[in-house]
């Protein structure tokens, strides 16, 4: 089973992960693989599902390919290239061939590069995107959005109750231990 097939199966397994009409990805196989590995680095499997379990890679691929503007997609693809270049120049191997510690170091370098970026006030994952935001911000946003709005992320990592039935504005967070999905 090649990586692409694996990703497709994972995407299908995350029920309802994708509704949009299927269209050709604008990422090549290497890039798709990087997206999956990066998403899992950001939100790994712990006592709850990780980004891959939750179908995040297919979601990110879809948004980047079908929803992003040309400019956003260019920033995203350039970011994937930069992280690969970082690995090659520092570790003499591609991102995909790098070990976990090296990948973390590479992603951290991109985070530092994006550190001076201040998102517009009130920035929400659901709001209008800032087209110019740097790669790391885009990648983290899509991973967070894809994960916490997936059934797996929303119902296991966070607390989900679509029909609470009452309102109580003075609850000790400790009794819940996790925040509401919405």
């Amino acid at each position: 089973m090649n990586r692409r097939t694996l990703l497709q199966i994972l995407a299908l397994a995350a029920s309802g992960a994708l509704h949009a009409k299927p269209s050709a990805s604008k990422l090549d196989e290497t890039q798709q693989q990087m997206v999956a590995e990066l998403a899992e680095l950001i939100l790994p499997r712990t006592d709850t599902p990780g980004a891959i379990d939750a179908g995040v890679p297919a979601f990110v691929d879809h948004i980047v390919s079908d929803w992003y503007s040309v400019r956003e997609r260019a920033i995203f693809i350039e970011g994937l290239r930069a992280i690969d270049v970082f690995c090659r120049s520092n570790f003499r191997r591609s991102f995909s061939a790098a070990d976990t510690a090296q990948r973390i170091a590479a992603l951290r370098s991109l985070e530092q590069r994006a550190a001076s970026y201040a998102p517009p006030p009130g920035t929400s994952v659901f709001g209008k995107p800032d087209e110019r935001s740097p790669f790391f911000f885009k990648l983290k946003l899509l991973t967070v959005l894809g994960y916490y709005t997936s059934e797996a992320g929303a119902t296991t990592e966070l607390a989900f109750n679509p029909v609470p039935g009452r309102y109580d504005g003075n609850v000790d967070f400790a009794t819940l231990g996790k925040q509401w999905t919405s």
């Binding site: 949009a20 879809h62 929803w67 659901f126 959005l145 709005t149 929303a154 029909v163 999905t181």
Partner: peptide, 13 residues
């Protein structure tokens, strides 16, 4: 009561 994962693009505009 539709959860985000049942919406196209998770309800993104």
């Amino acid at each position: 009561h539709m959860p985000a994962w049942q919406m196209p693009d998770r309800g993104l505009f």
